[in-house]
């Protein structure tokens, strides 16, 4: 394992932060304090944090609607996320994006709802990186459900054709919205589709943060060296249902239990305890600290100023007088 203990601890903290963010979101919804629907990524934290871990600040990330993992991974703070989620003027998107997070200072261009529309956008940002002679990489994080969108194909085709610095990171969490992957796919894996375009690929365990991180690191290095796109498929299990309010009757409980036994946060903690990087006490302290950070962000978010009627018509056009 090439990951240093310090790096592993850093990734562990981020995974804790992701879970705490989403649990807090769920709690606020249950308490009726917010209406913002959530699509949580519980159980997938090692993928979201593993795919963003090896990215540089100048690298570009397209994330998914499922949870906040990759946004935390790329450096968004709980405070900025909650300001945006609560639709506040001080949010990175001035409260206009809410779940559609974008943060230019972190090179996160935005999040679409018509899934897969951003597949080709990621090819475009990578095209610009190449034309501008930078060594910037774009990471396109996507679920297996979205990989059935038609645009997946010309996007992979263009990425390979033009040898672009883009990594397709496919999080296969066994579910496509409210049904099992086997209702959507005639195959077990998505990744071999890449071979049709001559794109190298790898299929890896999505529960072990060291595995997800290192696989991504290899793929990103490949793209950064100018060798073109790479696809990694991470196998995980969505412990959350599709959206808050989906009771998930379609989920096989036995299978869920089997995957729960390999919870990515538990696996990482076990490693850290065994390697004496942290003690049980330090772990408790860390968890409390993370929860306090999230609670503080929520408090600050609620206290922040709402946008006003003047903001309603702002930001549409750069040029004046069009509206």
């Amino acid at each position: 394992m090439s990951l240093s203990n310090a790096k592993l601890l850093e990734l562990y903290r981020k995974m804790l932060l992701v879970r705490s963010m989403e649990e807090t979101h769920g709690k606020l919804l249950q308490e009726g304090k917010i209406q913002l629907m959530g699509h949580f990524g519980t159980g997938q934290e090692a993928v979201a944090i593993g795919v963003t871990g090896p990215l540089r600040p100048e690298d570009i990330l397209f994330g998914t609607h499922r949870g906040v993992g990759e946004f935390i991974g790329k450096g968004m703070t709980p405070k900025d996320i909650w300001l945006e989620y609560l639709g506040k003027k001080a949010g990175p998107c001035r409260g206009k994006g809410t779940l559609h997070l974008a943060d230019r200072k972190l090179n996160i261009p935005g999040l679409v709802s018509s899934l897969g529309a951003d597949f080709s956008m990621a090819v475009g940002t990578a095209l610009a990186s190449k034309m501008r002679r930078t060594d910037q990489v774009t990471l396109y994080y996507v679920g297996e459900g979205t990989c059935n969108q038609a645009d997946a194909h010309p996007s992979m085709c263009m990425a390979a054709l033009w040898k672009l610095p883009v990594v397709f990171a496919v999080c296969t969490n066994q579910f496509c919205e409210l049904s099992y992957m086997c209702d959507h796919y005639p195959t077990d894996d998505v990744a071999p589709r890449a071979a049709g375009y001559g794109i190298p690929y790898e299929v890896v365990d999505g529960q072990d943060i060291a595995v997800t991180y290192e696989a991504t690191e290899r793929a990103v290095a490949h793209a950064r060296r100018g060798q073109g796109p790479f696809l990694v498929e991470y196998k995980t299990f969505r412990m959350a249902t599709h959206f808050t309010g989906d009771p998930g009757h379609y989920v096989n409980p036995e299978e869920r239990e089997q995957w729960a036994a390999r919870d990515p946060i538990d696996l990482c903690r076990k490693k850290l305890l065994e390697a004496a990087v942290i003690t049980a006490d330090a772990d408790q302290k860390l968890r409390a600290e993370v929860q306090a950070e999230v609670d503080g962000a929520v408090r600050e978010g609620f206290a922040a100023a709402d946008p006003t009627v003047e903001d309603l018509f702002e930001d549409l056009y750069s040029g004046k007088g069009v509206l």
């Binding site: 080709s120 475009g124 034309m131 910037q136 010309p154 263009m158 033009w162």
Partner: peptide, 25 residues
């Protein structure tokens, strides 16, 4: 490079153009 032929895929080439516009082009 600057007069770039694309595959026949209108939605995807529009998305690609948008991505390039997001990143300085």
């Amino acid at each position: 490079e600057r007069i770039l032929n694309t595959p026949i895929a209108e939605n995807a080439i529009t998305g690609a153009a948008m991505g390039a516009a997001m990143n300085g082009m």
